[in-house]
Design a binder for these strands. Sequence first.
DNA 1: AATTTTATTTAGCATTACAAATCATTTACT
DNA 2: AGTAAATGATTTGTAATGCTAAATAAAATT
Lengths: 162, 162
Amino acid sequence: MDKSQDALVLLRQIIRATDMQDKEISRCSGLTLPQLMIMQTLRLSAPISTGELAKEISLTQATVTSILDRLEKKELISRERGKEDKRKVWINLTTAGGELMKGAPTTQQDLFTRRFDDMQTWEQSMVVSALERIAFMLDAQHLDAAPMLDIGQLDRAVHPES
Amino acid sequence: MDKSQDALVLLRQIIRATDMQDKEISRCSGLTLPQLMIMQTLRLSAPISTGELAKEISLTQATVTSILDRLEKKELISRERGKEDKRKVWINLTTAGGELMKGAPTTQQDLFTRRFDDMQTWEQSMVVSALERIAFMLDAQHLDAAPMLDIGQLDRAVHPES
DNA sequence: AATTTTATTTAGCATTACAAATCATTTACT
DNA sequence: AGTAAATGATTTGTAATGCTAAATAAAATT
């Protein structure tokens, strides 16, 4: 009778499943999970500054820098000092990096997409609208009135003492 | 028009939000994320052997052992050699560990639960059934022909070389 | 010009994560 | 029974995270 518990259990299953997927992609690509996160972010948003990148994946700049070090050593990303603002460092995928990203992550999503497309139109709408509900519920409890992309700053504002 | 893309974006948002929640619980409780995962698993399934625990959270026995070392030093868990099978070590929450787990995680879920309960009954059913769909799709692409609870072995079978 | 702010990096530390090796115990086989 | 193989947990060694605090440098402000 307690549907909210059911929902939470299912959510946990879903998160677990995607976590396993990430780990598998990680193994296939030879990259660690945070390295992969950075590469995927770059694929969408390159070129991007180190700071923006850190904000995007909710990690410290220092952490991101060290991960970028390793990706640079593997020649998957490139760094370039900003021309107008010389404090910034712009990160880009190298050709090799772009190639690597072209392969792995899509195959995973393709299967999801295929199964999703197998559903009836009304079912698709139902799933999307349910996801919107859940996203709202989760965002609301944590982010409340803050914009989606500014989580790093929110964190610092909520816990200034740490 | 591409609803599957919408669904994937929302999924990513949801996973991101729960990830942030976990990090906040982590900060509040003074435990790291994997430590928290172990404590939560113990809360549900204690007493449990080290190996079972590792399987449950999809980490190596060696990794779990070292995390347990730290939790034991903080006196949040206890180890006990098995009586019938002396190779096994049974893990339990200490009183302090149980107390700690009683506090933190519920408050997070409470808000989800409250918002969930605010919805109409038909909406709740819709959300749950949509989650079931998604969980199935994600499981299906990863496990396909394998039983649900045997992921550790599957991993090893798929990548025996690594 | 001096100060403050912004962006990044460096350094040091504790924690994860895993593979390989080890040790004790249990099970299977002859 | 007695050896061989498997199992469960730990140890060891190595690489990668992830954080804070401090250092560096450039830009913006006063």
